[in-house]
Design a protein around this nucleic acid. Structure first.
Lengths: 335, 335
DNA sequence: TTGTACGCGTTATCAT
DNA sequence: ATGATAACGCGTACAA
């Protein structure tokens, strides 16, 4: 069902049909209605490929994410999807599983796919080959969650957030605080949060700032449980994301510890689910859907101006702290 | 950067360049390498829109889902994405928030977007306008989670699963079992699970089979808590999905009940997170990622054959039961 | 206000 | 083995 057929049946030229869909004002009321009528009855829908070939814009945004199995990215994609749709854009997401080769394949596929712009959550903007390749093109893009002075980013100040949180824990009386982190090499966020931890601990005059880097999510619970079984176990676990915090809650239970009486646990991300848990997860909250929304808005604005986004367009959204039930002063007596 | 430019620089015709990418065997070794060289140095990538316009296939699959905020669909999309990528397809997902108008908009947009096939999770295949519209086209599609004799579906037998679960609970000694359900009108799964509940209760000779239909997720916890505050409260809560089960855990806590000592709670879906909770969620498990994978595989196979999928291609995957920690015999004394 | 005709970048047919 | 060229469906400059 093409524009030709509609034109034929409506007794007008293809140009008129095209105008009915793209410049409705430039066609008389009567013919417009006539054409719409015919188009509807034929179930005509303009061919997106032809349109995109002709106009050189696809109205599709590419999205690259580590995984959808972490709700933080599902929430973000949800925001992206919503805002893109509102702006007349479709999205084409690809996941990388935190693997650099997949990251490059994804970006390359999206570049070949006539995306109008790209929204990226990468492992590390500093070293990403994919981002470098992208830089050699004129395709507009924006990073989300990532943070880097040379690129347009929508992010929160993880470093400060974590440092502040360490301060809170110390104010509650905690002295032995461990960080539970995901793989540092796979994520600049993890690195930033780790830096914030070290900084916060140093500021509190605490020399010992142990970081437990959990290699695989599958083994996280066991590793954390082992860490909690040690002789001078921490009184607080500062986890670099909510999923790790949830697994830490499990590990604490398995280790026979009550949260927050015996052990405090905090997360980072503010996934919605954390509010429905018992104990409610104490965590640093990011506006995940909002971060996606902002990324799309920046991108769409840039597209309207026919520009790429400069690094100076970067946005630091404000984070929050959810005072849940997984956090309390340390138990009074500790050996 | 077009095929023209590559041809010019390589000193061959566009036809030869095209062959290098599509039928490499039909071109001599020397020119093939020559062309590849030039293409690479120019960063040439075949234009997907032009290719799709010419071949009438986009190698993109459309996906319609209720929401990504329920991990069950995020897990499914993850499986879809993975299998699509492996088969050389990209995906274009749209969410409906369980709203029929969004459902129609999504399907319509995907039909206009030159999708090669559609993977759909709809509210209700029986009444869906979107599905009816789709039926009038020749676009291949497959339903996932939905179950209907007139359409190709990848699903599990929710009805039997729930009925069996009721049997298990009864065998443990439960007599007062309530179902907590999402909005019945918004989901055929909810309806099926509800039927399974009534059927199982009837089979156990239990006349009273109360169903608490929770209107909005936001108010779920309060509604459930109120239900638990009643005089002859249930000893078990059979929830129609894992998210409701998690909220029920919270509601039980707020009502001062211990799970599973005072109250048993079961879910449906088998989201990964349920395993990391305390108590580990007892639930009916579906192979969520696998359901997505199967849908894509069916679709890709149909595309290879140039066929639509007949209803007879439907697949009922087997479900399981995770014996977690949220379920136990009822307390001995009940008024 | 409406129509004609070109070109977007590619694949495929038909020659050579 | 390679090249010339038509056609995919559309938007738009230009003409009427």
């Amino acid at each position: 069902m093409s524009i030709q057929e509609v034109a034929r049946q409506a007794g007008v030229s293809v140009a008129t049909v095209s105008r009915v869909f793209n410049l409705p004002d430039k066609v008389s009321d009567s013919t417009r209605e006539q054409v719409r009528q015919v188009a509807k009855s034929l179930g005509y829908l303009p061919n997106a490929s032809a349109r995109s070939l002709r106009t050189q814009r696809s109205r599709v945004l590419g999205v690259v994410l580590p995984t959808l199995l972490n709700p933080v990215f599902a929430e973000c994609l949800s925001g992206i999807s919503e805002t893109a749709a509102a702006g007349g854009y479709a999205i084409q997401p690809m996941t990388t599983d935190y693997r650099l080769d997949q990251e490059e394949r994804a970006v390359s596929a999206l570049m070949a796919g006539q995306m109008d712009g790209l929204i990226l959550v990468l492992s590390n903007p500093e070293t990403s080959q994919a981002l470098q390749a992208l830089g050699r093109t004129s395709l507009p893009y924006v990073l989300v969650y990532n943070r880097h002075p040379d690129h347009p980013c929508v992010s929160v100040d993880s470093e400060r957030a974590v440092a502040d949180l360490v301060g809170r824990l110390c104010a509650q009386g905690h002295r032995r605080i461990s960080m539970v982190s995901g793989q540092l090499h796979a994520s600049d966020r993890a690195q930033q949060r780790c830096r914030g931890f070290r900084q916060g601990m140093a500021a509190a005059g605490l020399v010992d700032a142990p970081v437990l880097e959990v290699p695989f999510v599958e083994t996280a619970i066991q590793a954390i449980q082992a860490h909690l079984a040690g002789p001078r176990r921490p009184t607080a676990l500062l986890c670099s994301n909510d999923l790790l915090a949830i697994r830490s809650l499990r590990a604490a239970h398995l280790a026979g510890l009550s949260v927050p009486q015996d052990l405090s646990i905090t997360g980072f991300d503010g996934i919605g689910l954390g509010q429905d848990l018992t104990p409610v997860l104490s965590t640093i909250t990011q506006p995940n859907a909002q971060m996606g929304r902002c990324g799309v808005e920046l991108l769409i604005r840039a597209l309207a101006d026919g520009q790429r986004l400069p690094p100076s367009a970067s946005l630091t959204l404000s984070h929050g702290f959810r005072d849940g039930e997984s956090c309390a002063p340390p138990p009074p007596l500790q050996p």
